[in-house]
């Protein structure tokens, strides 16, 4: 089971992640990320907002994929929840692109009927949830993978763009491990139907929705550039 989780979170899984910088390319252009410390801050920011949101959706999708009925409807509802949590068109496209890439590899690596119940270009966390279920993993693992993947792509992109010492970048991500675990666990709890802090109503509507308007802005400015290395 652990090996399946490691496979899912491995940056070598050919699902297209390497062409996305998770906003870091534009953050570097804007002078927000320039050294290991500012990278760590950026990653934490991303982890606790977009990462937590993705983790909640991934855990919920994993749950939905594990049930036979009404799987298609649940996944469609979660896809709409992902849209509502991703108002930036650039980020929507990036998420759906990566979702499609993961479906392509996931379908062959872990064949299961649930793939057919996903919308054609699903948001990445949904594909991740289905992949986790298909690989015999649980919602907590799906959340964990989503939280982890929310920072690793950006870390690698920063390393390439700033020619940073790879050991330093590895250290930065390693030091965030406890926070990644906490975000994954929190999101998994929310997906299990825990009450939302200000509301008390459980259910997919109240999955984490952490947003950072700065990341939205960076993504939109980035999308307008025609001189970029990364798709997002």
């Amino acid at each position: 089971m652990t090996a399946a989780l490691l496979t899912l979170a491995d940056s070598r899984l050919p699902a297209g992640g390497h062409t996305h910088s998770g906003g870091v390319e534009q953050a570097i252009a804007a002078g927000i990320v320039h050294d290991p410390r500012s990278l760590e801050v950026f990653l934490r920011r991303r982890l606790t907002t977009a990462g937590s949101t993705a983790a909640g959706l991934a855990a919920a999708a994993c749950r939905a994929a594990g049930r036979d009925e009404p799987r298609r409807a649940s996944l469609a509802r979660l896809d709409a929840e992902a849209d509502a949590r991703t108002p930036s068109p650039a980020l929507r496209q990036a998420s759906r692109q990566q979702g499609r890439g993961l479906v392509r590899v996931g379908r062959r690596a872990w064949p299961t009927a649930a793939w057919d119940d996903l919308p054609p270009h699903p948001h990445h966390p949904l594909a991740l949830g289905v992949a986790a279920a298909a690989a015999g993993l649980g919602p907590a693992d799906a959340a964990q993978a989503a939280a982890y993947l929310s920072i690793t792509g950006s870390a690698t992109a920063a390393q390439r763009l700033l020619a940073m010492d790879p050991i330093t970048v590895a250290t930065v991500t390693a030091r965030l491990a406890a926070e990644v675990d906490a975000v994954g666990a929190g999101a998994d709890q929310a997906a299990a139907g825990g009450p939302a802090p200000t509301d008390g109503e459980p259910g997919p509507a109240w999955l984490p929705a952490g947003t950072d308007p700065l990341l939205d802005l960076l993504a939109e400015v980035h999308a307008d550039r025609d001189d970029r290395y990364f798709a997002s």
């Binding site: 500012s38 801050v41 920011r45 509502a84 929705a209 947003t211 308007p213």
Partner: peptide, 28 residues
């Protein structure tokens, strides 16, 4: 937290945290 639904479908759902200790409260 803002959640807007139209005809039962979520249109927007975001949570923004500000201030010391919040995710989006990190320099610069």
């Amino acid at each position: 937290t803002t959640r807007v639904e139209r005809a039962g479908t979520p249109l927007l759902h975001t949570t923004v945290g500000l201030g010391p200790g919040a995710p989006a409260w990190l320099p610069p």
